[in-house]
Amino acid sequence: MNLQPKHKSTSQTIINKSRKPFRLPSAAKLLIYLILILGSLVVLYPFVIMILNSFKPGNEIMHQPLSLPEDWTLSGYIKVFTSLNIGTLFKNTIIISTSVTVLNVILNAMVAYALSKLRFPGREIIFKVVIGSMMIPAILLLIPTYVMMFNFGWVNTYRVMILPVALSAYNIFLIRQFLIGIPDAYIEAARMDGANEFQVFFKVIMPMSKPVLATVAILAFMTSWNDLFMALLYLRDESMFTLQLGLYTFKTTIPGQFLEQLWAATTLVTLPVVVVFFFMQKYFIEAFSSAGLK
């Protein structure tokens, strides 16, 4: 979705204004900025507290919640690696999130390609099923999927965290909307050159749909990285735990015992997604804004 003003008259007013560089902003504009800045402070405050706490010793976190750290310390960060083994949690989470992301990009794109560019009997039915399945509340699947995974003997494996979320109806829908906009001529030309459908898909379709694939990758990565529920259900051994499950365990085993570690871990868990977000925010925001265009 284009978030910039579309209409010429708006951009015209912008240009007109910029010709008078010394014009003071009107009171209304000032008020708008004031509210937006106030909003930013409310949004940022909890993150500031998180980072400050991660540098405080345990007793300061408990007893001086309002002040800056008196002794800045890295002990929380050191302890999460030495005594809580957060390295393993990172490893597990990275394996799971990366697999989910790669599978989501390739498999959803394949289906979207079939549903937008290939003609075959039953295509419309398959598309209707994709759309309809977006309305299924996930909760309905929880117990039976667990029973199924239990019977497969998949509990406490990586695949149980990956395969049930390897595709997503919403992502198929997003990619399909994008592919419809690609002219068939590109595909025809590749076929003329003797490419088979897989070559067309990997050499023509995938490279051309990079923006939407980036969006899908980000959505899949973020959902997988942030998931606690599936990890809680399926992962048993601490050696298999993900970061979010680790956070939950640090918080609940003995309340208050791992205070330093908890805040260092919370910061470490949050940081990677935030960094990815900063570099790819265009696609992030796209991922959510495309939703409103149906």
Binding site: V43, L44, P46, F47, M50, M222, W225, N226, D227, L228, Q244, L247, Y248, T266, V269, T270, V273, V274, F277, F284, F288
Partner: peptide
């Protein structure tokens, strides 16, 4: 920022 942060954190 809050959107990309996990619910647990």
């Amino acid at each position: 920022l809050p959107v990309v942060t996990s619910v647990a954190a």
